[in-house]
Design a protein around this nucleic acid. Structure first.
Length: 185
DNA sequence: GGAGTGATGACA
DNA sequence: GTCATCACTCCA
């Protein structure tokens, strides 16, 4: 059981995205027990040139966390009702983040807890909202990432174009989405 | 296929 | 100040 440090997130966004698969999102609510969810699907948003990234149009009040230090949560609202959970990667000043799209509860937890297979379902279910925005994921703030020793083989990782970014021109076809083979939907 | 929902960014 | 857009989900 080891919490991830900043150095993990300071590497290339694509590497971080792939390495996050099979790691665990740990949630600690004030009133509930600690729970861990395995990350099964992520997307990378890398750099100022990525048209699908919020950072593409430059630094704004909303995407400011993406430009900041690695290992910080970037949580924002889309479509008026959906919170999106991202973790900032890359060096300070380089806008990049990994969107967490899918997680799966540990098998010994509530069985009927359905697989959380959409980015907004995760945040809704785990009660993640913008109060986590700009908070470090490298401290036990209530939401962080741990390695619980699950080994992921390279052959289990699949990639595809990202979802919901069809406006992004040539960037929409980049295979920046990574997911575990057993969790294809 | 289409509605819902509201923060955000662009423009004036 | 207004207006269009949006890294989505749900119901049909």
């Amino acid at each position: 059981m080891s919490i991830f440090k900043k150095e993990f997130f300071e590497r290339s966004t694509l590497k971080v995205a792939k390495d996050l698969l099979g790691k665990f999102l740990v949630v600690q609510h004030p009133t509930l027990d600690k729970k861990a969810y395995m990350i099964t699907e992520v997307e990378a948003y890398d750099g100022p040139h990525d048209k699908a990234s919020h950072a593409h149009r430059g630094k704004t009040a909303r995407n400011e966390p993406m430009f900041g230090e690695a290992g910080v949560w970037y949580v924002y609202l889309v479509y008026g009702m959906h919170n999106m959970l991202n973790i900032v990667t890359g060096d300070d000043g380089y806008p990049a983040a990994v969107l967490i799209r899918g997680v799966q509860p540990l098998s010994n937890q509530v069985a009927k807890l359905t697989k959380l297979d959409g980015p907004a379902k995760i945040t809704k279910f785990l009660k993640i909202d913008r109060k986590f925005n700009n908070k470090p994921a490298t401290l036990k703030t209530g939401l962080w990432i741990e390695d619980l020793g699950v080994k992921i083989k390279k052959s289990q990782i699949k990639s595809s174009p990202r979802i919901g970014v069809n406006y992004a021109g040539e960037w929409k076809d980049k295979k920046f989405r990574f997911f575990l083979k057993s969790n294809v939907r």
